[in-house]
Amino acid sequence: MNNFQYSRASDVADAIRLLAADPGAKLIAGGTNLIDLMKENVERPSRLIDISRLPLRDIEETADGGLRVGALVPNSDLAYHPLIEQRYPLLASAILAGASAQLRNMASVGGNLMQRTRCAYFYDTATPCNKRSPGTGCSAIDGLNRNHAILGTSTSCIATNPSDMSVALAALGALVHIAGPSGQRTIALTDFHRLPEDKPHLDTNLGSGEIITAIELPPHGFARNYSYLKIRDRLSYAFALVSVAAALELEGNAIVEARLALGGVAHKPWRSLEAEAALRGQAATPDHFGRAADLLLQGATARSHNGFKIELARRAVVRALMQAASATPQSQAHKKIA
């Protein structure tokens, strides 16, 4: 770990001031990813600004019937909050599919959005990695890439975003509230994370000096027909090879609205409005689900070891939509897949 200074922010404005004062500074809340990466010498902040005590822990109803979730709400508190369980069970399920009970107790909502890739080369300072050390090259493209992205990749990076929570938030159309030196702004979750392009060292569109203050869930929670299906190498406590957040609004067997996002396949939660539009007005059948999956996976590219993800993702999408349609969401504890 490098030698860093420690400051405790007294309020959001103070945190923004402290960030502006030290370009090498980083915010810390739960620390579950940042401390890990600091121990690997991947992250070397000159200063940690402790925001864990800022008053960003409320879950409040918004005027339009949605929910505003403070950036420091721990993942587990969010997953187990009665309003989330009732109105946004897809989000609860996605959170509970990730990490462990201990890590969920620590990790904050804002921190979850900021977590970095699990690419082994990113973690290993002895190997080239454009994300860690821009310009050194991507070791994964011609290396061990079984876990890597099939969508939205670039010639400089094929890393994936490891978050489960973000996949559900993307599907639900969540917004991210941000404060910074030039005031406050709000962006869609789907615009928060970015694709690697030629700047893979940038995971998100959060500006330097900015801080996430809240996420906002729109009123429509798809509480009846949803499923979060996560597929991984063991039955718990592993990152997704592929995950699917699926949500439907049905009238009878007809799809009124559909939401679909993939995790584990790209540098950001992967959502396709085209795929969702194709489902609208259709009957909830495996055929239609398959067509939506094809649209969602349009342009998917296999590398030497991750080709299986394309077909796996396709099947997982169909299955998650079936689970959603039949109102039998995947349990995160009972491992049999309905």
Binding site: Y121, T127, D142, G143, R234, A238, K335
Partner: peptide, 30 residues
């Protein structure tokens, strides 16, 4: 049978899952 494998990148001769997050051993749920 299902999980364990030490994975090496032979271009570097380095083990790339030298941890117990990516070297999978069974967890309670398995």
């Amino acid at each position: 049978a299902l999980h364990e494998e030490t994975v090496m990148d032979h271009r570097f001769g380095r083990i790339m899952n030298a941890n117990i997050a990516e070297y999978h051993i069974p967890v309670n749920a398995d």
